[in-house]
Amino acid sequence: MITYAESIQKPDAPIFQRVCPLPLDLCVSHIEDRLQARDFRVHEVYGRNGDSVVDTQSRDSKAIVPRHDEELAFFIFEAVQQYFEQHFLVQPSDSLVLAQHEFFAYTPGIGLKMHADDHVLRSDGSVLTRDVQRGITAILYLNSDFDGGEIHFPKQGLELRPNAGALVIFPSNRNFPHEVKPIVRGQRYSYQRIYGILNGETKRFEVASTICVPS
């Protein structure tokens, strides 16, 4: 079954890129202060059987509670709203709801295995778990002084080298699997905000009950 967010996505939705003109220094300072204070959680990535992945190169990115920046958050929301209206079959009463937001720090040797942001798959390709409240992912890159850390979208044939101020937006579903190449030098900082798409008629982040996709 597919989510409401996925059922109203246009099949040719691209990966959207925009440059953020706002200063990011305070975000970087906040991340580095939290890292020094060891005030973070280890971001676990789940394997195909649902168990935590033990490989430290795929699970040791550090998730940090974001520093509140209303202007920055509004910039990202406006960009996601534009993407939503252009690349989804939006009903007038549909709306975006923030489902998750965190800063992430990737240190040398750390990457992220291939995944999609709204689900975990079993080895046969069927869905093990799905977060229906995740519809569109936005990632703002906060620094440039590192090597490695490229984000790779194999289905779209796209690999991006993140630079400070680059905002990348894409659907969170299985059609946009991606990975992060391991960091070679320095530390890579990013701000991730994931939005759910609220069905205006039912007021739910529902799974479409009449549309099936092959596993």
Rank of each mutant, 00 (worst) to 15 (best):
Y189E: 12
R41K: 13
N163R: 15
K10H: 08
S215L: 12
Q192Y: 00
V207R: 10
Q57H: 14
F176Y: 15
P23I: 11
I169M: 06
V168C: 01
I64H: 02
T137D: 03
S52W: 03
A5W: 03
P21M: 08
N199I: 10
S29A: 14
T202D: 03
I151N: 00
T3L: 12
L22N: 11
G149R: 04
P11E: 09
V207A: 12
I151V: 12
P11L: 07
F74P: 00
L112Q: 13
R193M: 15
E85V: 00
D51W: 06
F103M: 14
E71C: 10
I2C: 02
P92F: 02
H178N: 05
D131H: 12
A73E: 14
F84L: 00
F205W: 05
A13W: 05
I15V: 15
E71R: 12
R161N: 12
Y189V: 08
V53F: 02
P108W: 04
V213Y: 04
C27F: 05
T137I: 05
P154D: 05
E150I: 01
M114L: 15
G50A: 07
P92S: 07
Q17M: 13
V184H: 10
D25W: 09
I151D: 02
N143T: 10
F88Y: 15
S172V: 02
V80L: 06
P182V: 12
R193P: 02
H43M: 08
Y195C: 01
Y83G: 07
G149D: 10
I8W: 10
V42A: 03
Q81C: 01
Q91M: 08
Q86V: 00
C212Y: 13
Q36S: 12
F75D: 00
L121T: 13
I136C: 03
S93G: 00
R41Q: 09
F88D: 03
D145L: 04
I76G: 03
P21W: 06
A13Q: 01
H119P: 00
P214D: 11
V65A: 14
V80Y: 06
S52P: 15
V127K: 08
D118E: 11
L128E: 08
D131L: 13
Y46L: 15
S215R: 13
E179S: 15
G111S: 02
Y141L: 04
T137M: 00
V19C: 08
K62G: 01
L198P: 10
T137W: 09
E201T: 03
F176D: 08
Y191R: 06
E85A: 06
L35H: 09
N199C: 12
D51K: 14
E102T: 14
Q86D: 11
I136W: 01
F88M: 05
H43G: 14
S190F: 01
R204P: 02
R18P: 00
L98D: 05
V45M: 15
A208F: 07
Y83M: 11
I197E: 07
K203R: 12
I169E: 02
Y106W: 10
V54M: 14
Q100A: 10
H178Q: 10
E70D: 15
D69Y: 09
D124M: 06
P66C: 06
S52L: 06
H101A: 13
P182N: 04
V184P: 02
T107M: 12
G200H: 06
L160F: 05
Q81E: 13
S58N: 15
T56M: 07
F75R: 00
D94M: 05
S172F: 05
L72I: 02
F88T: 09
P182D: 07
K113P: 00
G148E: 06
R174C: 04
F74C: 08
